[in-house]
Amino acid sequence: MDNIAGTKSSLTWAVHISVVILVALWLFPTVGLFVSSFRTGDQISSSGWWQALSTQQAQLPAIRVEGDETPTGGAFVIEGELIAGDNTVSAWGTSSRAPQAYEPGDTADLGDGQTLLINEDATFVLTSSETTEGTRLPRVFLTASSPPEFTLDNYREVLTSSTAGAGILQSFINTLTVSIPATVIPILIAAFAAYALAWMEFPGRALLIAAVVGLLVVPLQLALIPLLQFHNTIGIGKGYLGVWMAHTGFGLPLAIYLLRNYMVGLPRDIIENAKVDGASDFQIFVKIILPLSFPALASFAIFQFLWTWNDLLVALVFLGADDESLVLTGRLVNLLGSRGGEWEILATSAFISIAVPLVVFFAMQRYLVRGLLAGSVK
């Protein structure tokens, strides 16, 4: 009964469910990061991104009462606002052991002739029988609710401020400078090599193919320091040329292997007819092979761009960690260390770092499967 037309086997349903789960695991954090990038730091720390559209109620950290003292009727009065914004106080207290001891509008006796009144709109009145100048004013604990709040200030701060944004825009430009050439150069070289290994007869071709396959399993970490020493020896040193060459060398084995498998699967009759008509290998490559191999080229371009964009290790080794040449991943590491409490800055910076890879992936994803399956079916 499982093979009846119009029915789906249990394996098909399992595959569909697995795909849905994988998509959800990828989508939820991305949506959460996007929503968090428009929220304020207080709301991020007090509630999850899925609660961004609802009114939030949370117990705020201790707030020290402060303000200018005014003599009034034999007493000294300080008035002010504890928290700014459209917040509503539901409870408050003067001790961390009883943070909700009073309701809005209640007056608490603090002793020593001091009383404190806190209203629902977070305004307060501190009354003292003696002057409070030179003394430490009390602190309070508020439980308040706030409406949903979204802002573009996070993006303005990250993209325009050299101090608060810590050079995110410069790092964004540096990453583009690394990723685009490091994607284009391997494709150009690998396309020529793949055509030669697929359609040109010469001694040692099988050994070269085996060597390319073997290079796929070589860890790049083993080659970083020797390669940097080689760059210093030949005069390249640290710079964009060195990181482009490094990414090209590490990406060529996969590029050649992927493109060669695709080109081998192209119809032989087309190439043979072109040779009969007098076309050279270069003309066949440029006018026939490259247009037909676009899915494989796009597939590798996606992998290479995502790898170089998200790379940290190669960029640190061949570019360094100074502010002028630091890439986006390195900048985020610095932000995590220096601004770990400012979650809105981290969320905004992280979403900016994944925005370009998302655009590249969705723009070229239709070619991804076609390129990866190249040569698997004859």
Score class of each variant (00 low, 15 high):
Asn273Pro: 05
Ile185Phe: 07
Val356Gln: 00
Asp311Met: 05
Glu324Pro: 04
Asp269Met: 13
Pro253Lys: 12
Thr143His: 00
Gly340Gln: 13
Thr308Gln: 07
Pro104Thr: 12
Ala279Leu: 07
Ser45Gln: 14
Asn334His: 10
Arg97Ile: 12
Asp323Ser: 09
Ser299Leu: 09
Ser46Gln: 11
Val23Asp: 01
Ile185Val: 15
Lys275His: 07
Arg370His: 10
Val178Ser: 01
Asp281Glu: 14
Thr308Ile: 08
Leu332Pro: 03
Glu342Pro: 01
Phe305Asp: 07
Gly214Trp: 06
Trp26Cys: 12
Phe351Ile: 11
Met200Ala: 15
Ser325Met: 07
Arg331Gln: 15
Tyr240Phe: 15
Val217His: 01
Thr132Ile: 10
Pro71Glu: 10
Thr127Trp: 00
Ala122Lys: 09
Ala347Met: 12
Gly320Asp: 11
Lys238Gly: 09
Leu290Gly: 01
Thr12Pro: 00
Trp92Ser: 03
Val20Gly: 01
Arg268Tyr: 05
Leu335Cys: 08
Arg139Glu: 15
Gly341Cys: 03
Pro253Glu: 14
Gln283Trp: 01
Leu306Trp: 02
Ala210Trp: 13
Val360Met: 06
Arg205Ala: 11
Thr160Leu: 14
Ser161Glu: 11
Glu324Met: 10
Phe361Gly: 03
Arg205Phe: 12
Ala210Asn: 14
Pro226Tyr: 06
Ile256Lys: 05
Thr151His: 02
Asn232Leu: 09
Ala350His: 09
Leu316Thr: 15
Glu324Cys: 02
Arg156Lys: 07
Thr107Ala: 01
Val377Ser: 05
Leu82Ala: 06
Asn174Pro: 11
Glu344Ala: 08
Trp343Gly: 01
Val314Lys: 00
Ala91Ser: 10
Asn261Ala: 13
Val20Phe: 01
Thr348Pro: 02
Ile225Lys: 06
Pro138Arg: 04
Thr55Arg: 00
Ala164Trp: 05
Asn310Pro: 09
Gly67His: 10
Val212Cys: 04
